[in-house]
Design a protein around this nucleic acid. Structure first.
Lengths: 205, 205
DNA sequence: AGCCGCTCCCTACCATTGGTACGGTTTCCA
DNA sequence: TGGAAACCGTACCAATGGTAGGGAGCGGCT
């Protein structure tokens, strides 16, 4: 049990790096087993087929993602009482963490699976959808809290505002990769931060 | 000459749809030639290998993209003298066009190639980079024009502001796909529009 | 002590796919 | 009418995803 999970985790580690670098289709099982140091039978013992590997990868990635967000915005809410200040602080902390990654953000598996939709089964697409909805709820509840105190200078839908955070994250990752400029993602997050601050700035200021 | 280009275009049409739906790796040449109605030899007469197909696909996609933006923002600048109003109008027109697509945005090839980086050669990555830089110049020059008249309520870097448009487009496409909600992309564009309007709104308003 | 089940390894095999090679054929235009 | 452009046909190759099935080491339970 203990050893099995460890091997499984090692496969997932290798696979995640490969998929984020080359895409899912370009990642061969032979390559994974070579780097992990197991055999083909060993691989198929842990995963029925490539689709199940994809599912496991995605689920693990999303869980980890959620944990990171919990941590960052949890800390931000500890440091700032005001929900707006906490949110702005959280965005800044996130931006700084992303800026400190030596090679930039490794890429988002959700985006990878999205750009290769039909290559995966419905279950994976559903996991993807749930992930996006979780992000919406996470940031949406923050904006609701903010709006209980601050009046936005423009009436915007909370869900759409929450989605904007995911949008900038996903879009920023892609732009960073396209431009080969890792600093773009954290910069874009800070631009979003400015926008949000502007939105809730009292009209007199 | 005439016929050759037509066949080539037909291959590219079929390939583009397949790649956007399934990803590049999951799109087989056999499948393409079956749907196009040519033979394998015919395919390899037009494209040396799959990489050259990718390059041709990407180049055609970007050219088309540029043409659409030229059209929309050209028209917007005809309808509105003021650069800010023209930009806001352009964003709205773009949003409406995207909202009218029956199945939503089919996906961005630049993003596809980004999420599968190492699967392609440097030439493709360079084309991708140039595309992102073109977007930056396009929207950047608009923001410069705007800033010659309007003072932003917050000092933001023009390049980063320009990149924000690309970010929201790319991120919106991904979020739309993940959520299976085609209307998200146009909505996100309108949120960005609100942000930009807020940014250049006189402090007194 | 003995056995079960988990976690693999080994070998062999198959269909699909990207790609090569090369000769032949049709089509179109100058 | 001739020659290039635009294919077709066939044969072949290596890599890849996946299947089948037998076995081996090893810890834990009875």
């Amino acid at each position: 049990m203990r050893k099995g999970e460890e091997t499984r985790a090692r496969i997932l580690d290798v696979a995640e790096a490969a998929v984020l670098a080359k895409g899912f289709g370009a990642t061969s099982i032979d390559e994974l087993i070579a780097e992990t140091g197991i055999t083909k039978s060993g691989f198929f013992y842990h995963f029925r087929d490539k689709n199940e590997l994809a599912r496991a990868l995605l689920e693990r990635y999303i869980e980890n993602d959620e944990r990171i967000y919990d941590e960052i915005f949890g800390r931000a809410h500890q440091l700032a009482d005001d929900p707006l200040q906490a949110f702005l602080l959280g965005l800044k902390m996130l931006s700084e963490i992303l800026a400190d990654l030596p090679n930039g953000h490794p890429g988002c598996l959700v985006a990878v699976m999205c750009t290769q939709e039909r290559a995966f089964d419905r279950e994976i697409q559903e996991i993807n959808r749930q992930a996006a909805l979780m992000w919406r709820r996470r940031f949406g509840s923050m904006f609701e809290e903010i709006m209980r105190i601050y009046r936005p200078r423009e009436a915007l839908d909370v869900d759409q505002l929450a989605d904007m955070v995911s949008t900038v994250l996903e879009g920023g990752i892609i732009l960073s990769k396209a431009l080969k400029q890792p600093e773009s993602l954290p910069q874009q997050l800070l631009v979003l931060r400015s926008f949000v601050r502007l939105l809730f700035q009292p009209a007199s200021a």
